[in-house]
């Protein structure tokens, strides 16, 4: 016999993500899910951000990685708390991995928790980790057609950072084209061209972070 069901296939993850979100809301922690291709500069962005905003905020990082703990060590060198989650080849982080990683983090007084997802523009976009905002990072060396090729990620993101702008003279990358494609399905997306190497443009990103932090109600 035919049995109609109509259930969301990712409902198990959505349930865990909702629990995480509630728990983060109670603690007043701003949670940002950072996604990009491998090598776009997620860890460099975090190193910069953690150092530059250390006087203002208490921050921690959950590092998703296929195998190594290289990124977690780089982040920990800034003095911020970092927890490594190895997915053993898995292409994305999911809610249950975040739940487990939280056991190794001291959340008291935390202002911002960054989740550095596995380098991948496709899979992580489907799995919520209880974040307040998704942040898409794209480097100019990758080509300006990425928002067009991977529309879901840019559709669900609040911010698109265009990293490695110091390479712009050497690559054919149109900031306008990348921005237009990201805006096509998401008119609210904030676009910040930055260079984590030179520091150019980071102030605008920090301004967004401060505003997002202020908009998140502190713990009651």
């Amino acid at each position: 016999m035919q049995i109609p069901i109509v259930r969301n296939i990712l409902e198990a993850n959505d349930r865990i993500a909702a629990q995480l979100k509630k728990s983060f809301a109670e603690k007043g922690i701003l949670v940002l899910n950072l996604m990009s291709s491998p090598g776009a500069g997620k860890t460099s962005l975090l190193e910069r951000t953690l150092r530059d905003l250390a006087p203002e905020f208490r921050m921690a990082v959950i590092e998703g990685d296929l195998q190594t703990d290289n990124d977690a060590r780089r982040v920990a060198a800034t003095g911020a708390q970092a927890v490594q989650v190895n997915t053993d080849g898995g292409c994305h982080l999911d809610g249950s991995m975040i739940m487990e990683a939280l056991n190794s983090l001291d959340l008291s007084g935390l202002d911002i928790l960054f989740v550095e997802n596995v380098g991948n523009l496709v899979c992580p976009a489907e799995f919520s980790v209880g974040e307040d905002h998704n942040i898409a990072l794209l480097s100019v060396a990758e080509g300006d057609d990425k928002p067009e090729k991977y529309p879901l990620l840019f559709h669900i993101s609040s911010v698109m950072l265009l990293n490695k702008t110091d390479l712009l003279p050497y690559v054919d990358f149109s900031l306008e084209k990348a921005s237009a494609h990201a805006t096509a399905l998401n008119k609210e997306i904030a676009v910040f061209p930055v260079s984590c190497r030179t520091g150019e443009g980071l102030d605008a990103w920090y301004g967004w972070l401060r505003a997002a932090r202020a908009a998140k109600k502190p713990a009651a």
């Binding site: 016999m1 035919q2 109609p4 069901i5 109509v6 259930r7 296939i9 489907e126 879901l152």
Partner: peptide, 12 residues
């Protein structure tokens, strides 16, 4: 375009 669900099963 963002849907992802199981619609039905046929079983006995």
């Amino acid at each position: 375009g963002r849907e992802m669900y199981i619609a039905q099963i046929e079983a006995e």
